[in-house]
Design a protein around this nucleic acid. Sequence first.
DNA 1: CGTTTCGTGACATCGACGTGACATTTGTCG
DNA 2: CGACAAATGTCACGTCGATGTCACGAAACG
Lengths: 226, 226
Amino acid sequence: MSRILVVEDDPAILRGLSDNLQAESYDVVTARDGETGYRLIREQQPDLVILDLMLPKLGGYEVCRKVREEGVSTPILMLTARGEESDRVLGLDLGADDYVTKPFSIRELLARVRALLRRAKPPQPLPDELRFADLVVDFKRYEARKGDTPLKLTRKEFGTLQLLAARAGEVVTRDELLNEVWDYHNYPTTRTVDNHIASLRAKIEENTAEPQHLLTVHGVGYRLVW
Amino acid sequence: MSRILVVEDDPAILRGLSDNLQAESYDVVTARDGETGYRLIREQQPDLVILDLMLPKLGGYEVCRKVREEGVSTPILMLTARGEESDRVLGLDLGADDYVTKPFSIRELLARVRALLRRAKPPQPLPDELRFADLVVDFKRYEARKGDTPLKLTRKEFGTLQLLAARAGEVVTRDELLNEVWDYHNYPTTRTVDNHIASLRAKIEENTAEPQHLLTVHGVGYRLVW
DNA sequence: CGTTTCGTGACATCGACGTGACATTTGTCG
DNA sequence: CGACAAATGTCACGTCGATGTCACGAAACG
């Protein structure tokens, strides 16, 4: 389901939003100040951001402007106590997609969340299987074979391979892998990715010293070719 | 090039900043007190403001707040002797975009200036691939071929080529390349760019002594033609 | 309680990168 | 035309970050 980041300093409102969104079976991530919110937008790559205007450390306007300038296109729903037209205009100018003024009804907010998510681009579909050379991987059954010999792949290995396969040939960064394959409760270091790549190579490559399919792009990430 | 307004009352620091910025070929405008600075922001419409916190007549905070209230979105880099977190927070809340505490290294300040200017400009779309003559470059896959032979390009080489391709035929200055291809943590000299151009030529030109595509424009920069 | 999976750290290795020295070219001005 | 300075080309070297690899311990799981 979709991941939603809520950036709000008022604990009561944050709690209320979080509960209601979770009840709708969204993944909810929260931040209580602008700086954390800004960081989480990049780390978690949420599908939607609900952003309060008045925030400690870094205001909602600044967060909005900064992420937009960096080319992030995640929909942003602005939240504010002030209902003035000028705020609305400024917010939308800075790249917000919608605007709700406090106090708001939860029903209306959820409706707007759904609308924004519908508008957003659908997440990239992951393949059900992968076949090349003598390798067969079935992501639905969690089964893999190389030639006649069955391979034992772990969950992370399946996930890693699946994302790489979905973007066949393109470079996938370590951060992207962490965001897609790992959940946001544990967010290990990028070195962890290297290790899983290594164990994948040990299983699918003939010679790990000179991988033919699971290639490293120095300073960028990994790519899968065949 | 970009115009920068420096508002600083200490003559020594003002002079140092001004010289260094001019050496980087920025247009520099200066003010020694807050009132003048405030006026010049509106009159000169600089692309960036470097704003000291402690100023005669009108403090840096006030200048920042006032121009932001007027909807001016010019990036502001705050400068202060005090390094306390509270100052930083206040500054960012009031609409400053970045913050440097004295004493600061000129190189770091210049890097932040570049970063702010880069963010302020709308990012220009970069091509996904480049094809001419027998050359094929895929920037998503980080793959390149010249005829039948695969080319091994480094990250910087891909980036350099991509920016040149985005502005095909136009001259791109070394500074622009440094700003786009290099991140602001490293900001080498412009000579570094020459080196990467040289290695690119070695890979894509038939005869590096007489480049046909990656051309030098003496005293300006490089351009890519085909 | 044993097994599997996973995350982390240590270590070695490799590649990309920045820098400086020197050679060469270009532009400028006498 | 000729000399000089600045800009650029070229190369080699040292450094540092990125990556591969391994081993250990923790956590999850049955």
